[in-house]
Nucleic acid binder design. Sequence first.
DNA 1: CTACTTTAATCAGAGGCTCTGACTATCTGT
DNA 2: ACAGATAGTCAGAGCCTCTGATTAAAGTAG
Lengths: 145, 145
Amino acid sequence: MAEAPLNVGLLLHIPYRAMESRVFQALAAAGFDDFTPAQARVFQRIGPEGSRLTDLAEQAQITKQSAGFLVDQLERAGYVERVPDPTDARARLVRVAERGAKAIPLAAAVVAEVEAEWARHLGERRMSQLRGILTQLREITDPWQ
Amino acid sequence: MAEAPLNVGLLLHIPYRAMESRVFQALAAAGFDDFTPAQARVFQRIGPEGSRLTDLAEQAQITKQSAGFLVDQLERAGYVERVPDPTDARARLVRVAERGAKAIPLAAAVVAEVEAEWARHLGERRMSQLRGILTQLREITDPWQ
DNA sequence: CTACTTTAATCAGAGGCTCTGACTATCTGT
DNA sequence: ACAGATAGTCAGAGCCTCTGATTAAAGTAG
């Protein structure tokens, strides 16, 4: 794809993967060792009041069948629960359950820690530029606004 | 993981995924429709003189069994070939084959096109800042130098 | 030169992730 | 009331990745 000056796509992927590994290592060390990246990509999108399976699938850019498969596992492991959607009898809301709620602050802490490391390396100024540029870039690269 | 101000990890992932989709769409449209992201992650790392399976596996951060599986498929599809390593009879070099060589300039063109779109949106100045910051960030997030 | 250790690659088996296609139940709009 | 759209599931297939064991060749020490 590129050689000498790594393409920006790859450059974006490298720190992303580093962040992801750190979060998963920390979660596993804290006993959340049944928890896969694929499950996390769905779990992450669950809104405060719960989300419908179809919405989770769209946002994670997978089919609803795949999302259903992953939610099944998250449910079995106690991270989420499914409740009827009061506004639509066809639908069910996927909500964060007790065990999932415990994992969230832990993950958030690791994210904050890694971001702090990056800020130390880049300097606060460049770190905040990075955030600003990525937010602007999101305008044309995020299909889900 | 985060809510209001998206965490930087996620912000990095959004444009990466956009870039990847664009490249795969273009390859598929040009007849390279048997070519998966997993295969690409290995293919991408093949050096100009060919690379050993073990090195490809390390750089792609997968096991050598997985790398072997993917190289098998790339070989069957004509993207790569395996030749004996003249310096070590245990090893074989995975090299880009004819069909693979044809796909490379196409992928490079799409990468350039997407980068140009991003530069238009961000402005040349911020695009070049992005590249610089990511390159610096790579120093502490890339296990392979 | 021989024995031990390491390295490159493969084989075998298992499980996880994602997809397409088909189906049921419910809602929406006319 | 009916046709079409939407939420979710079931069934089946294929792809990706892993752990553990194995073969062959290299490197190393005595």
